[in-house]
């Protein structure tokens, strides 16, 4: 791969932006930014948004968009918590299993509308976003559950760390669910790049009709995509609950745009057919560094939204410009 090809890849550009941003922050506020404490803080903030982003990546590659995953996540978290409280089986693996199953079930509902009825993905998931959340609040409950009030093991999971580093004042630790993010990233990478299913997902997003003619089963693939995204969302919901130590039915919803932004910044095309796990993780890291570190530069919170907005426009704009230039070249040569 030559330099030109490297620069044409958005993953490489986003890496450069990330390095440049970190360098600027590190120069201005080195003691605060370049600390173990801050590194672990950034990585921890990546966990939930990262898990959601992996699902979103898969949907974007297939040419769709899913905005319902936050509702799936909070529904999975809340119902799982209620089941655990009501049955008294206070188990962390059970929480993850329940969360994954509820997420899968809700995701398959999206799959039915999208795969069988062939409705536009944005419309369907906008609908189910409100449907799932409304049903949760109306039928299940709207009361915030503080995990330590009703569980022991689940509440203690928030204190389970991969690494703890003693500091001059206090300590810094990295939560065990970070390993889960890495494992899920590897799984999604494997599916996308090492299986026929992954080929099918790229193919549908590239050109649906061509994929159909090539013999890919589109309905089955879409069922897999939306079911799997639901499953990831369910797991992400449980992780969110453990990290935040509570199940609050009003949380998570509202994070969808940051997640989609991270994936798009990471090089996934909103029109489908392109996107990588590594790019997505870089996009998540970039969004997280912006939203949690600009304050170290003394930049007020409102400006963080502004900077994220600018980056998204640039992130989406660069590939669009490249596509435009290619088309012009083709027209000229024709």
């Amino acid at each position: 791969m030559n330099w030109r090809a490297l620069f044409a890849r958005q993953e490489f550009i986003i890496l450069l932006v990330l390095i440049a941003l970190c360098a600027v922050i590190a120069i201005i506020n080195p003691t605060a930014f370049l600390s173990v404490q801050n590194l672990f803080r950034i990585l921890r903030a990546c966990i939930v948004i990262g898990i959601f982003a992996l699902g979103t990546l898969m949907v974007l590659i297939s040419g769709g968009i899913d905005v319902s995953f936050p509702a799936i996540a909070i529904t999975a978290l809340y119902i799982s918590t209620r089941i655990i409280v009501d049955t008294g089986i206070d188990s962390v693996p059970l929480a993850f299993l329940l969360g994954a199953l509820i997420g899968l079930g809700l995701g398959l509902i999206n799959g039915v509308f999208i795969g069988i009825f062939r409705l536009p993905t944005l419309i369907v998931t906008l609908g189910t976003l409100n449907l799932f959340r409304g049903a949760l609040l109306f039928f299940v409950g709207s009361e915030r559950i503080r995990l330590s009030e009703v569980t022991t093991n689940l509440a203690d999971a928030s204190r389970l760390n991969l690494i703890t580093v003693p500091l001059a004042r206090g300590e810094a630790s990295l939560h065990f669910t970070f390993a889960l993010l890495i494992a899920l990233a590897l799984l999604v990478w494997f599916i996308l790049s090492r299986t026929m299913l992954g080929r099918a997902i790229y193919a549908i997003g590239g050109d649906r009709e061509a994929a159909e003619r090539a013999g890919f089963n589109i309905v089955r693939t879409q069922f897999f995509i939306y079911g799997f995204v639901g499953l990831l969302a369910g797991i992400g919901g449980i992780v969110f609950g453990i990290l935040s130590r509570e199940a609050d039915p009003f949380s998570i919803v509202g994070t969808e745009l940051d997640v989609i932004a991270a994936v798009v910044l990471g090089g996934a095309l909103i029109t489908g057919g392109r996107g990588t796990v590594i790019g997505t993780l870089l996009g998540v890291l970039l969004i997280t560094v912006i939203s949690s570190n600009l304050v170290l530069l003394g930049i007020p919170t409102e400006w963080q939204r502004f900077v994220i907005g600018v980056l998204i426009i640039i992130g989406v704009g660069i590939p669009a410009l490249q596509a435009l230039r290619k088309r012009r070249l083709r027209v000229q040569t024709a």
Binding site: S35, Q37, N38, R41, S292, V295, L296
Partner: peptide, 8 residues
């Protein structure tokens, strides 16, 4: 968390 980094 930000405050802990900002004001040691």
């Amino acid at each position: 968390q930000e405050l802990l980094v900002q004001f040691p």
